[in-house]
Simulated scan of single mutants.
Amino acid sequence: MKLLLSVILIFALFFSGVEMISGAPAVEALLKTLPRFEGWKMESPFSMPEDEFVTVGADYSRGDRSFQFMVIAGPEAPSAGPLPEELEEDRTAGSTETAEAWFSFFSLGGFPAVKVEMKDESGATVWIDLESRGWLLLGGDGMKGDEIVKLLGKVNLKEFARLVR
């Protein structure tokens, strides 16, 4: 789990700007909106203010399985997305890959989404573009993309999109 979460945070931090936070949504509102997933225990929620965006989320566990749910919001949040700039044009093709992962593009709840599945089968992450104002993502070690999409189908994506405006 730590490897997948590290990859997620590296993507988010590497592709973001480096300035002070301004215009980021209220951390408290995002924390209050974190979803509860039936059968999963929510661990301590967290927030990480970064330059020009804020990340809010929580770890969830059930037995020996776990995943992380995060929202990245603020003026520079769109640049914190899952794709290196050179892969952006591949969105229209529906999928692309790097040496480490497969990327699939689809729509979830009316929002553009990117499913990232690690080639070594260590896990997957689904990123949802919240109207180009932020990202919502869920990822876990050993999880398959379809399993993550099913969990995200229970999340009120429109509420998160409203909060990141």
Score class of each variant (00 low, 15 high):
residue 97 E to Y: 05
residue 60 Y to G: 00
residue 32 K to D: 03
residue 16 S to W: 01
residue 79 S to K: 14
residue 29 A to I: 11
residue 35 P to T: 01
residue 124 A to D: 00
residue 15 F to T: 07
residue 7 V to F: 15
residue 48 M to E: 10
residue 55 T to H: 09
residue 135 W to P: 01
residue 74 G to A: 06
residue 94 G to H: 04
residue 117 E to M: 08
residue 27 V to R: 09
residue 89 E to I: 13
residue 78 P to F: 00
residue 97 E to M: 07
residue 129 D to K: 05
residue 40 W to R: 06
residue 79 S to Q: 15
residue 135 W to N: 10
residue 29 A to W: 03
residue 78 P to G: 10
residue 8 I to P: 07
residue 52 E to V: 06
residue 15 F to E: 12
residue 69 F to C: 00
residue 71 V to W: 06
residue 144 K to R: 14
residue 119 K to I: 06
residue 41 K to M: 08
residue 122 S to D: 07
residue 153 G to A: 02
residue 38 E to W: 00
residue 66 S to C: 09
residue 161 A to G: 10
residue 64 D to N: 02
residue 82 P to E: 01
residue 44 S to W: 03
residue 86 E to M: 13
residue 47 S to E: 14
residue 130 L to I: 02
residue 45 P to L: 03
residue 118 M to K: 07
residue 29 A to G: 09
residue 159 E to Y: 05
residue 53 F to H: 08
residue 145 G to D: 03
residue 40 W to T: 01
residue 144 K to W: 06
residue 11 F to N: 15
residue 75 P to M: 03
residue 44 S to N: 12
residue 154 K to F: 04
residue 9 L to P: 12
residue 104 S to T: 10
residue 73 A to M: 01
residue 11 F to A: 15
residue 151 L to K: 07
residue 13 L to K: 12
residue 58 A to K: 03
residue 20 M to D: 12
residue 132 S to R: 12
residue 147 E to G: 00
residue 117 E to Q: 12
residue 157 L to Q: 11
residue 66 S to R: 02
residue 106 F to R: 12
residue 128 I to A: 09
residue 96 T to L: 03
residue 103 F to H: 14
residue 125 T to F: 06
residue 151 L to H: 08
residue 62 R to F: 03
residue 31 L to A: 05
residue 123 G to K: 01
residue 122 S to Y: 00
residue 151 L to G: 07
residue 162 R to L: 11
residue 58 A to F: 03
residue 10 I to L: 08
residue 99 A to W: 13
residue 44 S to G: 15
residue 93 A to I: 08
residue 50 E to K: 08
residue 90 D to A: 15
residue 151 L to D: 05
residue 160 F to Y: 12
residue 16 S to I: 00
residue 92 T to Q: 15
residue 122 S to K: 10
residue 149 V to M: 08
residue 137 L to T: 11
residue 7 V to A: 15
residue 140 G to K: 00
residue 86 E to K: 07
residue 115 K to R: 15
residue 21 I to V: 14
residue 120 D to K: 08
residue 159 E to M: 11
residue 16 S to R: 03
residue 113 A to R: 09
residue 119 K to G: 04
residue 91 R to T: 07
residue 21 I to A: 14
residue 69 F to S: 02
residue 37 F to N: 02
residue 158 K to M: 06
residue 140 G to R: 00
residue 150 K to F: 13
residue 155 V to N: 02
residue 130 L to F: 06
residue 66 S to K: 06
residue 139 G to M: 00
residue 10 I to N: 14
residue 5 L to S: 11
residue 51 D to R: 05
residue 64 D to H: 04
residue 80 A to I: 06
residue 92 T to L: 13
residue 11 F to Y: 14
residue 93 A to T: 13
residue 134 G to C: 02
residue 152 L to E: 01
residue 96 T to G: 08
residue 73 A to I: 00
residue 57 G to H: 04
residue 70 M to N: 11
